[in-house]
Nucleic acid binder design. Sequence first.
DNA 1: CGGCAACTTGACAATGCTCAACGCGGGTGG
DNA 2: CCACCCGCGTTGAGCATTGTCAAGTTGCCG
Lengths: 244, 244
Amino acid sequence: MVNRLTCKLEAFGPLPEADRFLLDEVIRSAQAVGPRTDLIREGQTPSDVNLILEGFACRYKVLPTGRRQIMAYLVPGDFCDLHVFILKTMDHGIATLSACTVVKISRARILELMERPAIAKAFWWAALVDEATLREWLVNVGARKAEQRVAHLLCELLLRLRTVGLTTGNQYELPITQAELADTVGLTGVHVNRILQRLRADGLITLRSKNLVILDEERLKAFSNFNPNYLHLAEQDGLPEQCL
Amino acid sequence: MVNRLTCKLEAFGPLPEADRFLLDEVIRSAQAVGPRTDLIREGQTPSDVNLILEGFACRYKVLPTGRRQIMAYLVPGDFCDLHVFILKTMDHGIATLSACTVVKISRARILELMERPAIAKAFWWAALVDEATLREWLVNVGARKAEQRVAHLLCELLLRLRTVGLTTGNQYELPITQAELADTVGLTGVHVNRILQRLRADGLITLRSKNLVILDEERLKAFSNFNPNYLHLAEQDGLPEQCL
DNA sequence: CGGCAACTTGACAATGCTCAACGCGGGTGG
DNA sequence: CCACCCGCGTTGAGCATTGTCAAGTTGCCG
């Protein structure tokens, strides 16, 4: 089975054989976590770093009103909290959406990995891309209208999942309910439902039993004004292709 | 004149005398920048790190539709792009809002500073707080309704400016137009105008010629569900007070 | 087969947007 | 010093988008 973490990191640049080996080591002690389960709760002090190997997780906050906002999707290859060592308490929660397999990596282990220059740089890149993605989500929710928000999110996931080898063509598993999608893009479940139907009617997507097909990638990207620059995937001269 | 950067960093923890001296050094070569001026544009490759000493700047993106989304306010003591060394191109622009004074710090200088453990840790903290703030803005725009979005933003600025000594009581300079506020919270200029009037009518704030007074801090915080935990100000045992 | 969660649909209400006009105020040039 | 102008703030009316509530329907899992 492919190492999703290595896959992802090599989207930034190739890693030495030895580093890849090291990453394979780290990933051994995976554990299964059920869906809708907190990995860390707001207010807690994290000790280990969580790395997602399978499934979808998310960062989220719940307001006193009961409204929940999802602030990030964590997909295979993503770290949950790479350098929260410094902050004492979590200001948000992290929970699985689907069933996941997760690795807990100790602080010591992370520091050990960071001594490898190529890995350290790749970790940095991953953290910066996470932040850039967060910014794009703010743009999505703040500046795009409902239909394009959803479309944009689907485009982003296509690229992100593609870099870790979790797409087949223009199709991927989206193990998420419409209500969760709604909490992501700042809309109502009902409204998201209607939007999905419009996207289907427009021949842009197919979505049945958590299986998403993007029928016309170019048209969906154009429709949602999708500009992939914030994922910083194509910055190296040569792109490694071993995950596709 | 107080060193806003030191002020801010010491909100995380006290710095050794020598470190403070070093930071004072760095700040000497300030330059003035007019309002509404780009510091970096999307697509460019940054060389230096910008540090704001006076005035307000912002991160922003402009969509093809013309809609602009402001993704962060950069106030005195804030770095614009502490570790974008790694990414090749900017995925967003940074521009001044008001007239500013800015210091350009070379990459070498930053690395030099990062060798001081206390400074390095404080820089880390600052970067993580920036990210936490970004998350809170996503919550703000995605999950709160218009009136509370604005109120929440005003509360946040009160705390942030207070830590760098730019408030007098519950009052501070807000050198920003209503249209810019609108681009920040994902609303229309017209609507922001009406909201401000409602906040005034409710006796929560006063805002005249860029001068904001929060008339009832507790009520405004309660109204906007403001929880300052994401600013991570009170995590150290002893809070330094030299900036107040 | 039952049950529950997710999805779907409709009618209506509320929130926020658009467009358009006007006032105010500070700065500039005559 | 005055007049003008332009950017910003303000206001109103009507409209569009999105939310709310409530009632089905579907589909999966036990």
